Computed example of a mutant assay.
Amino acid sequence: MKLYGVTGWKNAGKTTLMERLVTEITGRGLTVTTVKHAHHDTDVDQPGRDSHRHRQAGASQVVLASPRRWALMTELRDAPEPSLADLLPRLDPVDLVLVEGYKRAPHPKVEAWRGANGKQPLAGRNDTIRAIAADGPVETPLPVLDLNDTKAIADFILREVGA
Rank of each mutant, 00 (worst) to 15 (best):
D95Q: 04
V161W: 09
T16Q: 04
V97Q: 07
R159T: 15
R77G: 11
G162Y: 14
M18A: 12
F156P: 02
E24L: 05
D127V: 05
W113G: 00
N117W: 09
V44T: 07
A59M: 08
G118T: 05
A71W: 09
I157F: 02
T128F: 14
L91P: 03
E24G: 03
G58V: 09
G48D: 12
G162V: 14
K10N: 06
I153F: 00
Q61K: 12
L72G: 05
D45L: 05
R125S: 07
K151C: 00
H52Y: 15
S83R: 09
Q46A: 12
D50C: 09
I153S: 01
E24P: 02
N117R: 13
M18R: 06
W70E: 14
A112W: 01
V44R: 02
A152M: 00
T42W: 11
R28S: 14
G136K: 03
P106Q: 10
A134G: 00
V6K: 04
R69Q: 15
E111Q: 08
A163N: 07
V22T: 13
G13P: 00
L145F: 02
Y102S: 09
P121N: 08
P82V: 12
Q46T: 12
G8K: 06
T42Y: 12
R159H: 15
V35G: 04
M73R: 07
R114M: 02
Q56K: 07
D78A: 15
R130L: 15
N148T: 10
L88W: 03
T34D: 06
D146S: 10
W70L: 15
Q120V: 10
A59G: 10
L30W: 10
M18L: 15
L88F: 03
R159D: 15
P67Y: 14
E24I: 06
Y4L: 08
L76I: 13
A65W: 08
W113E: 00
K109Q: 11
Y102R: 11
E111K: 09
I25F: 09
R114L: 03
N148V: 01
K103F: 14
K36I: 08
H54K: 05
A105E: 14
K109W: 09
A131S: 03
V6M: 12
Y4M: 06
M1Y: 10
P108A: 15
P121G: 04
P80C: 11
E19S: 14
A38D: 12
G5V: 08
H39V: 13
V144D: 01
D43E: 13
T31G: 01
D155C: 03
P141I: 06
T128H: 15
P47T: 12
L17T: 05
W9D: 05
T150M: 00
A79N: 12
W113R: 00
R130D: 11
V22Q: 12
M73L: 14
A152E: 02
A57F: 02
P47V: 09
L30I: 04
H52C: 04
L147S: 05
G136M: 02
R159Y: 10
D155R: 04
A131D: 06
E139W: 03
V44S: 04
Q120H: 09
